[in-house]
Design a binder for these strands. Structure first.
Length: 279
DNA sequence: AGCACA
């Protein structure tokens, strides 16, 4: 009988989206906040705001400097879970910076943002943890901001966007290595290949699509672009990263990983023989 | 084992 019962969500009426996801919007505990990674480290809160402001149900966003290297993440809060899901599906895997090819990785946040429109804080908020000492541990910065990403549940295909402009590489979530401190072994990379920031991916099934691989790779820090070559036979792929360390991390992390399209066992990943050309 | 694009 409490007074906290909302009879309806005003946005719900105007919901132009075909997804049935909005039906979950009123469930208690529904997550209305998205976690965004893959952002270039010079991203501005304004860019995040512009990214989401036109999305149905958008309420507010935050840019957060994690203090872990130069990594930047963002949170976007919507008026309902469904709106958040729709925005996530639209923007996940999207190229955020056409210059570098860095792509957004968007997940449902672990918890809802509690920093919505605080009086005086404007349409977006910046959280800056960069002053904190960053010892070489990976401890979460959960003390002040417990909203981290959770298990990825990605889905859609990439699109182009046009309302942002930045540069440099991408960084991102808990699965990613620290920007530069990741360990690399001399013995890595199959046998005899020398480290390269482009990876060669083989043992793909005949039905492997660029989208499928791109969705997977866009979760990783520093991922630039993917190219698939069919060459008449089985497809192979080249995935380019900003740094060798990031390529190494991905190679180790995804080595043997079974794609849903595969009919022949896991991916085989090596350093490419030459760096992907800039184009 | 399969490594392109210039």
């Amino acid at each position: 009988m409490a007074a906290y019962h909302q009879p309806y969500d005003p946005y719900y009426v105007y919901n132009p989206l075909p997804q049935p996801l909005q039906h979950f919007a009123d469930e208690p505990g529904a997550i209305n906040t998205l976690f965004v990674s893959g952002l270039p480290d010079d991203v501005k809160a304004r860019e995040i705001h512009n990214l989401f402001r036109r999305r149905p149900g958008f309420e507010s966003c935050q840019l957060k400097y994690t203090g872990r290297g130069d990594q930047v993440v963002a949170f976007a809060t919507f008026s309902s879970h469904g709106f958040a899901m729709a925005a996530m599906n639209e923007l996940n895997g999207v190229k955020f910076d056409p210059q570098t090819g860095s792509t957004l990785h968007i997940e449902v946040a672990r918890s809802n943002s509690r920093r919505k429109d605080r009086p005086g804080s404007g349409p977006y908020v910046v959280i800056d943890n960069r002053n904190k000492e960053t010892s070489d541990d990976q401890s979460d910065e959960g003390e002040s901001d417990p909203y981290e990403a959770q298990e990825p549940g990605n889905s859609n295909s990439p699109k182009e966007i046009d309302n942002t402009k930045s540069e440099v590489d991408s960084d991102q979530d808990s699965k990613a290595p620290p920007t530069s401190g990741y360990l690399e072994k001399a013995s890595e990379g199959g046998s005899g290949a020398r480290p390269c920031s482009t990876l060669f991916i083989a043992n793909l099934g005949p039905n492997c699509t660029e989208d499928e691989l791109k969705q997977l790779l866009s979760r990783y820090s520093g991922f630039n672009i993917l190219k698939i070559r069919a060459r008449g036979g089985m497809p192979v792929a080249f995935a380019d990263f900003e740094e060798i360390e990031q390529a190494t991390y991905v190679m180790n992390d995804l080595q043997g990983n079974l794609l849903s399209s595969s009919d022949r066992g896991g991916m085989h990943i090596e350093y490419a023989r030459s760096k992907m050309r800039k184009q």
